[in-house]
């Protein structure tokens, strides 16, 4: 599974309560849709750190990295690439 698919699965399971009918595209704003708030984002961060073995700095917890599935996937890819390059 791709990063995008795994993140989508997590969001559906935890924030949509496994509802498969609700449309959820990679570019949808999770905050505008009310799916993620200040508590939800902490759950998401914990998932990303555990699932993908990355460490998120406080400065990385910004909408640009976490507001869309596409943004989250791109962020995780960048972190994994940086870790491999190091």
């Amino acid at each position: 599974m791709t990063i995008e698919q795994r993140v989508t699965g997590f969001i559906r399971e935890n924030f949509l309560f496994s509802d498969q009918a609700t449309p959820l595209s990679p570019a949808d704003s999770l905050m505008e849709a009310g799916l993620i708030d200040s508590t939800g984002v902490l759950e998401l961060v914990a998932y990303l750190e555990q699932e993908f073995g990355i460490a998120m700095a406080d400065a990385d917890i910004v909408p640009a990295n976490l507001d869309t599935i596409a943004g989250i996937s791109a962020y995780v890819s960048r972190k994994q690439s940086a870790a491999k390059a190091a």
Binding site: T39, V41, I61
Partner: peptide
């Protein structure tokens, strides 16, 4: 105005706990 910056509270608390 948390609606403008919904992640700010989470970041503040996480920063403290870390």
């Amino acid at each position: 105005d948390p609606s403008k910056d919904p992640l700010a509270g989470a970041r503040l608390l996480r920063s403290f706990l870390n």
